[in-house]
């Protein structure tokens, strides 16, 4: 490769002049600036699957919250009409006229199944998010204190050993018997012991990070233990917490469906109650869509939430940011 230096308009001296060694210059970092959350989203949206999943999740959640409110859904509008119950889509449309409400037929109380599953989704998703929020907040805060204090640790381990060994289903059955089975009873039943498992998990993580040297250094500067827990240790566990949320929230939906299915559910027409009702109608003709559509929507919500959460958990781990 021949380069004509003359053409560059530089003299010999200029071409081969000495570059001064600059001490400060050598300390410079050439890599671009790093921002944690920007990198999280960059990694998350790098995968096409994640975009599809997130779109699906957003659509489902928004639809579940907007649609029943727009149409003013009333499950008992046709309760007294014997001819409106357990209809297949074609029969329902023949009876009520063509509209989006009847594309999945009619259910046990003569309600449109399509409207019923979205109303049920709204209740189930609300339950999952409220339980998730309560359990995570309490679990993370208690877990942080549990991991830090040796005295609390000794006490909480005993509590955990006792409470953790009582089957949750038993506790929830007792709750369902004791109180009227409403939405908030269900929230109470799922959160009364649900946080302890999360707290135990967080406690283990805190113990791992607690005695790292940078936390000692912070203590040396005079930072209070509370502040260290809040500012140094909790942010470190973002990825762990997100991953945990990803498994917890869908599990509440599945749990609610399961409880309703065995007859311990709440009085609101959640997805679990719909499945429970349809299961009782399995001998009646026209039950298929009435049963399978809430099952399908419950599965879709659970899977989408789980996959989105897991992938967000992966993306929030700084080790994937390379």
């Amino acid at each position: 490769m021949d380069i004509n230096y003359k053409e560059l308009g530089l003299t010999e001296e200029e071409l081969f002049s000495r570059v001064d060694h600059n001490e400060l210059e050598s300390e410079k970092i050439t890599a671009p600036r790093y921002s944690y959350w920007k990198s999280v989203f960059r990694v998350f949206f790098r995968s096409k699957v994640n975009i599809v999943i997130l779109g699906l999740l957003l659509f489902t959640v928004l639809f579940a919250y907007i649609y029943p409110n727009v149409t003013h859904y009333d499950p008992y509008a046709n309760l007294m009409n014997g001819a409106a119950k357990h209809l297949s889509p074609s029969k329902a449309m023949a009876y009520f006229g063509k509209s989006i409400h009847w594309i999945l037929g009619a259910g046990a109380s003569g309600e449109p199944t399509f409207d019923a599953i979205w109303n049920g989704s709204q209740i189930s998703i609300s339950l999952a998010f409220i339980c998730g929020a309560i359990n995570m907040t309490v679990g993370v805060l208690v877990g942080a204190v549990w991991g830090f204090s040796k005295k609390v640790d000794a006490f909480m381990m005993e509590v955990y050993n006792i409470v953790g060994n009582v089957p949750t289903i038993l506790i929830i059955s007792v709750m369902a018997m004791l109180f009227s089975p409403s939405f908030w009873t269900m929230v109470f039943a799922l959160t009364v012991v649900g946080w302890i498992g999360i707290a135990y998990f967080i406690r283990t993580q805190v113990i791992i990070i607690r005695d790292r040297e940078y936390n000692l250094a912070s203590k040396c500067l005079g930072t209070s233990t509370f502040k260290i827990a809040l500012r140094n240790i909790l942010p470190f566990m973002t990825s762990i917490i997100v991953t945990l949320l990803a498994t917890e929230i869908p599990s509440y939906i599945s749990y609610e469906v399961f409880l309703a299915y065995i007859g311990l559910g709440m009085s609101e027409m959640s997805l679990g109650r719909l499945i429970y009702q349809a299961e009782g109608a399995m001998v009646t003709p026209g039950w298929e869509l009435e049963f399978w559509s809430p099952v399908a929507i419950a599965s879709i919500i659970a899977v989408v939430l789980y996959v989105a959460g897991q992938n967000l958990g992966d993306a929030s781990d700084p080790r994937t940011h390379m």
């Binding site: 936390n215 000692l216 250094a217």
Partner: peptide, 21 residues
Amino acid sequence: GKLAAQIQMIFQDPVDSLEPK
């Protein structure tokens, strides 16, 4: 804080003694 202003410490491992976040 009063003590922290009077005695300070440098730690052995520069990787582990700085909060990564």
